[in-house]
Simulated assay, not measured.
Amino acid sequence: MDTAFDPDRGWRLHHQVAVRPEPFGALLYHFGTRKLSFLKNTTIVEVVNSLADHPDARSALRAAGIDDDRQAPYLHALGVLVQSKMLVPEETQ
Rank of each mutant, 00 (worst) to 15 (best):
1 M>I: 03
2 D>E: 08
2 D>K: 12
2 D>Y: 09
3 T>R: 15
3 T>V: 05
3 T>G: 02
3 T>W: 13
4 A>K: 10
4 A>C: 06
4 A>M: 09
4 A>N: 10
5 F>G: 07
5 F>S: 07
7 P>C: 03
8 D>V: 08
8 D>E: 14
8 D>G: 06
8 D>S: 10
8 D>H: 14
9 R>A: 01
9 R>G: 00
11 W>I: 07
11 W>H: 14
11 W>M: 05
11 W>Y: 15
12 R>K: 14
12 R>P: 02
12 R>I: 03
13 L>N: 09
14 H>L: 07
14 H>D: 15
15 H>C: 01
16 Q>P: 00
16 Q>D: 08
17 V>N: 02
17 V>E: 01
19 V>W: 00
19 V>D: 00
19 V>E: 00
20 R>K: 05
21 P>E: 04
22 E>V: 00
24 F>K: 04
24 F>D: 06
24 F>V: 04
25 G>V: 08
25 G>S: 07
25 G>E: 01
27 L>T: 09
27 L>Y: 10
28 L>F: 06
28 L>I: 03
29 Y>M: 07
29 Y>F: 14
29 Y>G: 01
30 H>G: 00
31 F>R: 01
32 G>C: 00
32 G>N: 00
33 T>E: 04
35 K>D: 08
36 L>Q: 05
36 L>K: 02
36 L>V: 03
39 L>E: 01
40 K>W: 11
40 K>P: 04
41 N>E: 12
41 N>T: 07
41 N>S: 08
41 N>M: 06
43 T>S: 10
43 T>Y: 11
43 T>M: 12
45 V>Q: 10
45 V>L: 12
47 V>T: 11
47 V>C: 13
47 V>M: 14
47 V>N: 12
48 V>Q: 02
48 V>M: 12
49 N>K: 15
51 L>V: 06
52 A>F: 11
52 A>T: 08
53 D>W: 15
55 P>T: 05
55 P>C: 10
55 P>K: 13
56 D>Y: 03
57 A>F: 11
58 R>F: 10
59 S>Y: 01
59 S>A: 12
59 S>I: 01
59 S>E: 09
60 A>L: 10
60 A>T: 11
62 R>F: 12
63 A>N: 15
64 A>G: 14
64 A>L: 15
65 G>L: 15
65 G>C: 15
66 I>V: 15
66 I>W: 02
67 D>I: 04
68 D>M: 15
69 D>C: 09
69 D>T: 12
69 D>I: 03
70 R>W: 12
71 Q>M: 15
71 Q>F: 15
71 Q>T: 07
73 P>Q: 03
75 L>G: 09
75 L>W: 08
76 H>D: 07
76 H>S: 04
76 H>W: 04
77 A>F: 13
77 A>H: 11
77 A>T: 14
78 L>C: 02
78 L>I: 12
78 L>A: 03
78 L>P: 01
79 G>T: 05
79 G>W: 10
80 V>F: 10
80 V>G: 13
81 L>A: 04
82 V>S: 06
82 V>T: 13
83 Q>M: 05
83 Q>N: 13
83 Q>C: 08
84 S>W: 14
84 S>D: 09
85 K>E: 15
85 K>C: 13
86 M>V: 03
87 L>E: 13
87 L>V: 05
88 V>R: 07
88 V>P: 03
89 P>W: 12
89 P>V: 07
89 P>C: 05
90 E>W: 08
90 E>H: 05
91 E>K: 15
